[in-house]
């Protein structure tokens, strides 16, 4: 059984948000949901200014507070380390979101049909798309995954449930890298099995100094960063839109 983990090299990141967009399309995430979020920030005073970028997927914590607090075990951890939400079980209490130190959760505040940016119910379009919602919806999201056969992949299943990065469970099952990883134009990500010392990710971890976010909370994230963590006095630049009212 692999134990999946990721290394993110901040020294290479261009802050382009291509990973975010890959995630959006692959997982059909709804408006305002950024399972991958690339933060842009600056530090310092003119002209001694530093600009930085921080891609932030779910950290897939080994000691995941979100899993602990979920009253119904909708939020659960698979043996391969993936922390997932069972969309058929989630009651939408948002306790996981409250407990997660990294802000990676996105609640389905609206019903899926109202959350896909445009009104896709158009007969001419539907004759081509078969009524898929949205038209580019990945069919792999609507089947069950994992050892227990749960509905865990992708976004847009129901309103009122909690969603977040799944490490692209549907792609891992096909032996593909997660969508964000595969799409980064400048190879910021390394992804793979942390338990296999020969895997690329293990080798990168062994050869590079890394840090994890909020290590002091002992959540033991399986996402590691190379580079400099953002300091306390950083200011966010160009935040993404929050979605429409």
């Amino acid at each position: 059984m692999p134990r999946y983990g990721m290394v993110i090299d901040l020294d290479r990141c261009m802050g382009c948000r291509a990973c975010m967009e890959a995630c959006k399309i692959e997982n059909a995430t709804t408006e305002g949901h950024f399972w991958m979020n690339v933060f842009r920030y600056e530090e310092g005073e003119y002209p001694d200014v530093h600009v930085g970028f921080l891609p932030r997927p779910c950290q897939h914590c080994e000691n995941a507070p979100c899993v602990k607090v979920c009253p119904v075990q909708a939020r659960h951890q698979q043996d391969d380390g993936l922390v997932l939400t069972d969309f058929k079980r989630c009651i939408g209490c948002r306790y996981c979101e409250v407990a997660c130190p990294y802000g990676v959760n996105y609640f389905a505040f609206a019903e899926p049909e109202d959350s896909y940016y445009l009104d896709w119910s158009d007969p001419a379009l539907e004759s081509v798309t078969g009524g898929a919602q949205p038209p580019y919806r990945n069919p792999d999201l609507d089947v069950r995954h994992g050892p227990d056969g749960r509905l865990v992949a992708g976004d847009g299943h129901y309103g009122g449930v909690m969603t977040k990065c799944t490490f692209c469970v549907q792609r891992l099952e096909k032996d593909l890298d997660p969508a964000c990883v595969a799409n980064c134009p400048v190879d910021v990500f390394t992804f793979g099995d942390l338990d296999d010392p020969e895997s690329e990710v293990s080798r990168k971890l062994a050869s590079t100094r890394t840090f994890r976010l909020k290590e002091e909370l002992n959540t033991r994230p399986k996402v590691f960063y190379v580079g400099t963590p953002p300091g306390e006095d950083t200011r966010e630049l160009e935040p993404v839109s929050k979605g429409r009212e």
């Binding site: 009253p71 119904v72 079980r89 989630c90 009651i91 209490c93 609640f107 309103g159 449930v161």
Partner: peptide, 11 residues
């Protein structure tokens, strides 16, 4: 408050 009452009452 919760997203789904029918699911909540199963708790």
């Amino acid at each position: 408050d919760v997203g789904s009452i029918p699911r909540m009452i199963q708790l």
